[in-house]
Amino acid sequence: MTTPKLTLSNRDALGARRGRRLMYAALVLLALVFLAPLVWNALYALKSRSESASTDVHVLPQSAEWGNFHRALTMIDFGRYTVTTFMLAGIFALLVTASSALVGFGFARLRGRGRKPLFTLMLATTMVPQILTVIPTYVIFSKLGLVNTYWPWVLWGLAASPFHVFLFRQAFAGLPRELEEAAILDGCGYFRIFWQILLPLVRPVIATSIILAFTFVWGDFITPAIFLNGDNTTLGVAMAAGYTDGGITLNNVLAAGTVFYVLPVLVLFFVAQRSFTRGVATSGLKG
């Protein structure tokens, strides 16, 4: 079915048009507010150091310093860092989505002794500030010889993330019981129910999970700063460390780098968000 989720009946048609125009206006206004810091950042990257520090504020630069963008791409090995970060984020996103879907399914649809306490415990682990776990985790991984490698991300991906588990659990919990019952009547085991029946129904959540996980690793600074070193670190850390001159950060170059930094994930998101609108949810009982 391809009908929109929120339909407007014919009686509201005229009011709907006016309402729609108002809505678009509001959206455009809000979008401008949201974009303002980013646009300002891009303009800042185009300005020279002394112009950015002037009290005479102009929106457009007096003389565009494209050199900052050039420096952003050349002062560090931008291409290489982009590729490695992309791979790291991608692998983590896929692994964590897969494992969290499994665990979330378990919490939502299966019974077991200790399920509720276990869920609460899982939730409780999100209440532990990262600052607490970071040094002991480093020590553990160091003893295992895993620091300065990408293995911690693989392990974290396999171990599932409470955030994503919770997300899947909520998604699965909302699906009707009848789907399962029909499948059991047909003689399906639970993994098959998971894989073939319920998982396809939460496709938007899968996309969400992948995007959020990817974005998280892409933008994460603290973890790579500690667990990786200068050579194999992520793009974000490389940028923060590399745009320096005599130890002092060049903020205009950093701003330019940030513009490039957000582009890949932006494109990824734009492509992926279409799956949110694909009509997936049906009431379908198979067969």
Partner: peptide, 11 residues
Amino acid sequence: SKFDQVKLNAA
């Protein structure tokens, strides 16, 4: 690598 107090302490 960038100087990071947390990383130094951890290391």
